[in-house]
Simulated assay, not measured.
Amino acid sequence: MIITGLLCGALLGFVMQRGRFCLTGGFRDMYLTKDNRMFYALLIAISVQSIGVFALIQMGLIQFQAGEFNWLATILGSFIFGIGIILAGGCATGTWYRAGEGLIGSWIALFGYMGMSAVMKSGALSPVNNSLKGISTPTNSIPATFGLSVWPFIALLALITIFLVVKQLSKPKVFIPSLPPKRKGLNHLLFEKRWHPFFTAILVGLVALLAWPLSEATGRMSGLGITTPSANILQYLVTGDGDKYLNWGVFLVLGIFLGSFVAAKGSREFRFRAPDAKTAVSSFSGGILMGFGASWAGGCSIGNGLVMTAMMTWQGWVSLIFMILGTWAASYFVYVRPRASAKKKAAVYQTTTA
């Protein structure tokens, strides 16, 4: 049954690569260009998963316990993670699928992410990782906090998502010229045609839903998750303890890499691209911050931003907010401030040479 993790991950990697489902770029563009399409796409994926998962829970097919809400660790860790994904050029899942495209910078970020996650979870920094766990509230479930059923919250999310999506789709479309298709039929649809982010989001939501019963069938009571499985890969390579570290989640993240590779090869987008020294340092530093922040927050942009939000937990939605704030803060120092400084220097130069 553990091989289903590989198949589920391959589906996710294929879909995300072909649909260019990049949350890092989406969060960044909300701030830099006021483009909210990828955020709306994330809401679609959350809604699809939430409706499906709670339907499965009601039918008694899967189980879920929200647990307690480590609010301080979630806030700090998510903000740090948001900074890290800007420096790394991709979030945890984005780094995995872009590594499958042959992007060496993503490989560098991935090593930093895996290494720091392992150090935080079972290495020298495990006391740091656990230091804020005691600062928590006993109730993590949003519906339980208000003493209500989960379905009104799901309905509200679905209505907000539908409103935002319809509003976005009603905007005038910008014509983007494209070359005549070189392929026909299914081959064209899978590997050549541009995928709409909202269509991609529906598929991501369905894969996230599929992950729940497949994972729980192996005894892993959770859905999609990236940080702990990524750390487990490194821990397995160091210790060789397969019984402890090789599980459904490990095969999931390996499947993301495999699915992305297949998609990139099929669409002729795979090629090895080496970064310059500055980008390499930034990627590795971002990977370290990603691993540190995601470990503290109890999840990354997928574990918290997609899964725990769908489960209507405080951890998921608070994490998503501070993750976005972290990307905006980093975007200011990485993109906005350097541009403003460059414009100022250019203006001074023109004044002095006039």
Rank of each mutant, 00 (worst) to 15 (best):
G94R: 02
L110V: 06
L125D: 01
L254P: 11
G115F: 06
Q58F: 10
G123E: 06
M311Q: 11
I160D: 08
G13P: 09
W151D: 02
W195I: 04
W195K: 05
L320Y: 04
E101V: 10
F69S: 10
V128L: 12
N247E: 15
I44G: 03
S131I: 04
K167M: 02
S319D: 09
K173W: 06
F292R: 04
Q315P: 09
T218E: 04
S126R: 02
W195L: 05
T4I: 07
Q63S: 13
T145Y: 15
L186G: 02
I302K: 03
A55G: 14
S295D: 03
P229K: 03
V150N: 14
A158N: 06
A329Q: 07
S283F: 06
T137I: 15
V262Q: 05
L210H: 12
I321M: 12
L209Y: 07
G223R: 10
Y335N: 00
A329F: 07
T95L: 08
G26Y: 01
N129P: 11
F14R: 01
F272H: 14
S78F: 12
E101T: 12
F199Y: 11
D35N: 08
G90D: 06
P229S: 14
V166A: 12
L237M: 15
L32V: 06
G223Y: 07
F14Y: 00
V119H: 03
S126V: 09
S122Q: 14
L289D: 09
L210G: 10
W248S: 05
G219R: 11
F191D: 00
K344H: 02
A10M: 14
S331Y: 00
I176D: 09
M38F: 06
S141M: 13
Y335I: 00
G305Y: 01
A231C: 09
A231F: 11
V207Q: 07
F14V: 00
G26N: 01
N247A: 15
L43F: 05
A297Q: 05
R337V: 10
Q63Y: 03
Q350Y: 08
G291P: 05
I86C: 10
A263E: 02
V262A: 06
A274V: 13
S149R: 12
G147Q: 12
L169N: 11
E192P: 01
Y349N: 03
T228K: 14
C8E: 11
A264R: 04
Q168K: 14
T93L: 14
A346T: 03
S47E: 03
K193W: 12
G147E: 13
G299W: 11
M290D: 09
Y113N: 05
G9K: 05
S178Q: 13
A277F: 12
K171W: 01
Y236R: 13
L210E: 07
L7Q: 09
